[in-house]
Amino acid sequence: MTSSVATKSQSPVQAMSYALAYAIAVCFVVGAYATGNLDNFVSMTGLSSVLESWALKDYTELLAFVLIVLLGSTVALLGGQTSIIMAVGTVGSFFALTLNQHPLIQYLSLAAVLFAIGLYGMVVSRNAVRVLMAIELMLNAVNINLVAFARYVDPVQVKGQLFAIFVITVAAAEAAVGLAIVLSIYRNTSTVDMERFNLLKW
């Protein structure tokens, strides 16, 4: 809330430079995690005992994630450009969370990121067609999951790819019917604004 107010009162150049500074900071955090400096820092400051007490001993990457999120919210409150901060923070935390993992977990995490972006877009956007685009994004994320399972868990029978084929089929049907519904609503109400689709309101 505060971020949007602050963005309006500041010049776009300033907001942009805040976002750039945030990008550099995120690069530093990810670099520190990738080269193992963050681990050294954790063991030096005695934070490892805290992590251990929460049964999160090998989860140093969560610390990098929390750091990135805290930095991001601080910069957004200071008045950086929110969309760039969100994108940079997502990419940075995706790197920090998956760099030292098995490829399967990398693919599953990417699918989770895309699914979360699709969910966010579905809730936030007010154009009905954009909501449908976000749903397509979420279905694609699920497909990445299935194909990754076919590659790393079940490479002989590739059942994951089979189910991905069915998901694609259903997605095509959904897109056709959904867009037809949007068109017919547009013809009746002359708007595609989600907030004004209140025909069922009583």
Binding site: S83, M86, A87, T90, V91, F94, L110, V113, L114, I117, G118, Y120, G121, V124, S125, R130, M133, A134, L137
Partner: peptide, 9 residues
């Protein structure tokens, strides 16, 4: 990821 943000924003 970046293009997905582009789609929704």
């Amino acid at each position: 990821i970046l293009l997905a943000y582009g789609v929704i924003l």
